[in-house]
Design a protein around this nucleic acid. Structure first.
Lengths: 218, 218
DNA sequence: AATATATAAAGAAAAATATCTTTATATAAA
DNA sequence: TTTATATAAAGATATTTTTCTTTATATATT
């Protein structure tokens, strides 16, 4: 089950776990910045986030940030460094395919913009949805995907179709030039190796929850 | 010779990674069963799922299942064993709090039932949503949560409120006797230690996707 | 200015996880 | 029945990730 991890780059490999923790740091740091604090130390972050301070230092170090002993990190510099490292400050233009409830939820959640993702349009085959808007994003007919993606040079696609349409939709996305797919369905997509696929399966987490809960009841 | 771990929850810690992989096996196995195959070998699973066969054997072994050399595992037995191990065959009754788009998506996605979760009711404060139904689940007023949860003995809650309401809603859930919370918001909840919280942050995965994508473009 | 101290940074150790190797065995083939 | 072989199971090794320890240094305190 190695998927996107295999993308080998020049710099030394950074663990996915580290990368997954960085957005949480970012959200925390934005609150710290809002409070007006100019600097933040790893021990402080660790206490607030209930995390090991040395792990935080290690995680942050992958971005190249330098902190000062007895002071910590400059908050705004740290925010910008993480955003830059993760690509959140780029204008990552994306299309969303599948404007059902889940798709609508994604369209309505403006927090995604904080991650540098800007959804330019959504696509569906349900005529009753066409031309409706959610979160200022218009739903267009799926058949227009290819031409628009090509013309606008869209490389990122968010897949939120029903399971039985996922593979087909994903293939159309690839044919339209989309290179990276955020797959919110529980379907295992079969796509050419060069396509970057990130699976967000809510259901893996459900397994942990139920296991923990049922074990605690036993 | 460690056996019967499935019955003994104190037996041996099982890694979260293993538990997270089990639902993926389950979904795959259901397709295999649908095809009519009676048995399945780890090498075959590994080929289909692009995973290491020995890892699959190790993962499956935590459930206590026994396979036969040259044949593999009995498909239906394996399915039931995994479901039993994860608690998916229990009737895990749950409430959903926050009937916005994301909540509606969860209510409409019937796949959750395959995980043993049965959502009995949803709650919101938006009067216009009260008494509406999604996926056969009725939306009730949030103020009714406490009494109903108590009366029905609900222990599992799914949190899908907007971020700014998440902490407050979670506290109400705990006060109503809910012991396990599936937190779909990006908020870090501060709750008593005894409450089981599983965070599903879609945004961690976005970080991986964007990093992989932007690195590949570099 | 000198000293003490909190904290980042680097390195080492430990723990967790994944992969590889060997062994045992059930089934198929001869 | 006998032998060959595919595969589960167990064990060993390797890798990855986290945690612990040490060191260096910038700032605060005196």
């Amino acid at each position: 089950m190695k998927n996107s991890e295999s993308q080998n780059n020049k710099a030394q490999r950074v663990s996915p776990q580290t990368i997954k923790r960085l957005p949480a740091y970012l959200m925390y740091l934005q609150k710290v910045a809002q409070k007006g604090d100019l600097s933040i130390s790893a021990p402080r972050m660790g206490a607030d986030l209930e995390a090991d301070p040395t792990q935080i230092v290690k995680d942050l170090s992958v971005t190249g940030i330098k902190g000062k002993p007895r002071v910590g990190y400059n908050v705004t510099e740290l925010i910008h460094t993480i955003e830059n490292y993760l690509g959140f400050n780029k204008n990552n233009e994306a299309f969303l395919i599948g404007a059902g409830k889940l798709g609508q939820a994604i369209l309505s959640y403006h927090e995604l913009q904080g991650f540098g993702i800007r959804i330019l349009a959504a696509f569906d085959i349900d005529e009753s949805k066409i031309n409706q808007s959610y979160g200022n994003v218009k739903i267009l007919h799926f058949k227009k995907l290819g031409e628009l993606a090509n013309r606008l040079g869209i490389s990122i696609g968010i897949l939120t179709t029903p399971s039985d349409k996922a593979q087909e939709a994903a293939e159309a996305m690839v044919k339209s030039g989309i290179k990276a797919i955020w797959n919110m369905t529980s379907v295992r997509l079969e796509l050419p190796k060069h396509v970057i696929v990130q699976n967000t399966s809510m259901y893996a987490d459900v397994a942990i929850l139920l296991k923990d809960y049922n074990d605690s009841e036993a």
